[in-house]
Amino acid sequence: METIFQFLFTQLRQQTRASERVCHNVASRLATEVNRICTESSRIQASGEVENWAKTLANHRLKQCLRYYKLGSKRGRVELQSLLSAIVYRYIAPTKGANSYQARVTLIEDFLQGFYAEALHNFRRENQLPLTYSPRTLLQLAEYMAFCERYAKRRIPLPGRRSQQLIILRSQTFSQKQPPETTIDMDSAAEGGISETDGERSDPLVQQLRAMLVDASNNEPDSGLRDTIIEQLVQYLQDRNQQDCIDYFVLRLKDLNASEIEDILGINSRQRDYLQQRFKYHLIRFALYHRWELVHQWLEADLEKNLGLTPQEWQQLQTQLTPQQTQLLQYKQQGLPTSEIAQALTLTVSQTEKQWFKLLEMAWEIRNRSVS
């Protein structure tokens, strides 16, 4: 590490007008980073050429830093902005009605402002700098811009032994958080873009949810509740370590087709099919089991509205229930907690929840047949 530091320090002193102290600090941070990479990389350690790797990495970081230094503050920022904008351009799209080049550029600028702040935060953390640190001199600014470029291009592991650049994943999340001015096709999110012409009938539960989401732009009184459901679904998936399902969900919300999703996630069509089926499973569990009250409230199909069924459909549901399910429904209408209902029915809490899940499935199937 001392050899690498001396090399970097000497080059910075010779090729910049920065003070000795600034050159020392920048060289020290770069040398520490190179040492960390060489130490933590099993591939480098197994190569038997750790010293050569260290020299190569140090030289790369030096050239990158000097490039931004020679460009200067203004041209350097323009160069970095252009580079990162080109990477994320296809992943950040404005909503319908504002689908112009200028609208997309404005959205990209908003995204990059947040990304630069994130990069600075990580720059401070990885170099153990105080939270108040900001680049002051031209060399410090060049060091930070070079770090931004490397940070943006970091490869994040994804399913299928593939990876994706960090800035692309960040841009997808950013786009998903934009105000939803267009309808969201939840059926496509669950089925991976399978259309009715494919000859495969969608699951009735997901089809019902899709129909309500498509009509949400015209009929939904509370768009905030809709956003809450999306946030809750993402949290639900996070709690179950389903990050790949979250990535898939975010991409589907952006209305990307199957081939684009495969390209971004680095998976083949078979792996995507498996992923979309797994997401569909979690979507149904979330809608009818985990947060059924929230979803049904948004769909105006809560218990006070007979689960959204007409009087005739409600009667039809009653005839299909077992005596135990009829009691369960009555207790739910009374607002009793699940633990008390379970005790009254001589069931465990888990068994009671499963029975309620089945009852909701029956109601949704009846409603879906009516809609169809």
Rank of each mutant, 00 (worst) to 15 (best):
M1T: 14
M1C: 11
I4P: 09
I4L: 03
Q6E: 14
Q6K: 15
L12S: 00
R21E: 05
E33F: 07
N35D: 06
R36M: 12
E40Q: 01
S42F: 02
R43D: 05
E51V: 09
W53G: 02
R61E: 14
L66S: 08
L66V: 05
Y69S: 01
I92F: 12
R104P: 04
L107H: 00
R124P: 01
L131H: 11
E143Y: 08
Y144T: 06
F147Y: 14
R150V: 01
L158G: 04
Q165F: 04
Q165S: 09
L169M: 07
L169I: 08
E181S: 11
I184V: 12
G192F: 03
G193P: 05
I194P: 03
D198P: 06
A211E: 14
M212V: 15
L213W: 14
N218M: 07
D222M: 04
S223R: 09
L225S: 03
D227V: 13
I230Q: 12
L237M: 03
L237W: 10
L237N: 03
I246N: 07
I261H: 05
D263Y: 00
Q277S: 13
F286G: 02
A287D: 01
H296T: 13
Q297R: 07
Q315P: 09
L321N: 07
L321C: 04
Y331E: 03
L336F: 15
V349C: 07
K358R: 08
L359H: 06
A363H: 09
S372G: 12
